[in-house]
């Protein structure tokens, strides 16, 4: 085998070829070769991503499982972590601070826990999005797949994490007298919209984080500021009483506040529609679609550049 191939090798260099004199680009065009690593069109990109859906799902589940695989209690932590979180918040804000601010305890505790879980969902999607590319350079440099798979996969991992938290949330809601009703069905569209919103943001920050890894250091501060402005621990309406109308409105269209309020409205009996800003569903839909589409296109535009160290 090796002997024959050697002969061919000699022939390769010696033989005159009809392609002689063509530039590389002309030669490539003649035989239909494409530029390696070029960015596909947006439609083609979506098609490739769809083809990778099993990988995206498997990767997110693998990440989720790997998280607690060294712990003795194992996957039990998926539920125990949010439960402990809820416990700490109840202790600090419910027992010590009595921070219910014009709400009865029965409403405030589920109000608080819902807020924390819903905000954490967005927060951790963004945090893992920042590192989606820069933290997985090895993978990006070794295998070929649409890079958007990574941030989407991380956002999906957070969604699965949230589903575990929802179990805790249901227990808390029921424990404080909000029983399952038809309005609980609203949880599904709310989660879908928020997931879209998170994914769009994760895609956008993934591109920024790939170019500037320092963003991972900065992001916690931005997110914490956002959290305190979104009314996780207090009701915006109540805190902002007496301030100009537009300030309150501006704070209410904040996407984090919108998703939290919708979720509270769906879950908690005593938290009625009067707490929601006008056109709340339209606002939620707008945020979800606009941020997802914007983030996706923004990420795709740099597709061929990911992986440069």
């Amino acid at each position: 085998m090796s002997e024959t191939t050697h002969d061919v090798g000699v022939a390769v260099t010696a033989a005159p070829s009809p392609d002689e004199g063509l530039t590389a680009t002309q030669l490539a065009a003649k035989y239909g070769l494409a530029v390696s690593g070029a960015r596909p069109s947006l439609v083609e990109y979506v098609r490739q991503l769809w083809g990778r859906r099993h990988f995206i799902l498997a990767f997110s589940q693998a990440k989720l499982t790997a998280q607690y695989s060294q712990a003795k209690l194992g996957q039990l932590w998926q539920v125990a972590t949010p439960l402990l979180n809820a416990g700490v918040y109840y202790f600090v804000f419910g027992v010590i601070l009595h921070a219910s601010r014009g709400m009865s305890q029965d409403i405030y505790i589920p109000f608080l826990v819902t807020g924390v879980f819903v905000f954490t969902f967005s927060q951790s999607s963004i945090m893992s999005g920042v590192r989606a590319i820069s933290g997985n350079l090895g993978l990006v440099r070794a295998l070929h797949f649409p890079r958007a798979s990574l941030p989407i996969s991380f956002a999906l991992q957070q969604l699965q994490q949230l589903l575990f938290s929802m179990i805790v949330l249901f227990v808390v809601a029921i424990g404080f007298g909000s029983y399952p009703s038809l309005s609980w069905l609203l949880i599904l569209p709310i989660l879908a919209l928020q997931f879209l919103f998170n994914t769009g943001l994760a895609l956008a920050v993934a591109r920024m984080g790939a170019k500037t890894p320092d963003l991972a250091q900065l992001m916690p501060f931005i997110l914490r500021t956002w959290m305190y402005m979104s009314g996780v621990m207090f009701s915006i309406n109540h805190m902002m009483a007496g301030r100009p109308e537009w300030v309150v409105r501006a704070m209410e269209v904040n996407p984090a506040a919108v998703f939290m309020d919708l979720m509270r409205f769906a879950l908690i009996d005593g938290y009625g529609a009067s707490n929601l800003p006008p056109h709340v569903w339209a606002i939620a839909l707008f945020w979800a679609v606009a941020v997802f589409a914007g983030g996706f296109v923004y990420f795709w535009k740099a597709e061929e550049r990911y992986g440069r160290g």
Partner: peptide, 29 residues
């Protein structure tokens, strides 16, 4: 096509693949 070129171009027929999958595997699984 895994590392972007600074200058110049690579043309390929189809998608060349690198034999190696290490980076995708997770030790905890």
């Amino acid at each position: 096509g895994l590392l972007p070129a600074e200058k110049g171009k690579v043309f390929t027929d189809g998608q060349p693949s690198l034999l190696g999958v290490n980076a995708a595997l997770m030790n905890d699984l």
